[in-house]
Amino acid sequence: MKTYLLPSVKITVVLLVALSGLYPLAIAGIGKFTPGHGNGETIIYKSRVVGYAGIGQKFTRDDYFWSRPSAVDYNAAGSGGSNKGPSNPDYLKQVEGRIQDFLKHNPQVTRAQIPAELVTASGSGLDPDLSPAGAQVQIARIAKVRRLTVGQVTQLVNSHIEKPMLGCFGPSKVNLLKLNVALDELKK
């Protein structure tokens, strides 16, 4: 046993220094040169930080584009999904409730137009995006509440659609925080 124990302990000590100490420190050093300086990229509006570009936040007011339902209520000190199974009757009732709520706030919209992501919770509970359809289905409401033309809001949404990676890999999406900031700026 002694033939192996002592070398085991010693090599562990050296590797702890190298792998757990030096390696992440080097990455932290390199991280200083990234756009967010390693602290995360913030979005600034009216000279105050209103959030992180990548981290979704709660938008429930009618004058903003709504974000997706969240199992952690967009509390970014934690994260997680609902973990509801697809056949769970309570969960299905909850989804039906969300659909009705959405229809109430968006009378211009029919059921078949609501994309699934607006009535289902994301995996992280902090999803920052919607699909283009998820934003487009809210245009009529936003235009009405903000007294803008449908054309203006549509143009705003279209200019915020992020194309798939290299144009051909992955889904298109819309970052809600950026879209809603732009919406506020439009009104100025």
Partner: peptide, 9 residues
């Protein structure tokens, strides 16, 4: 199916 999934993926 979108429950538990992220839009960006």
């Amino acid at each position: 199916a979108m429950e538990g999934k992220e839009v960006r993926f």
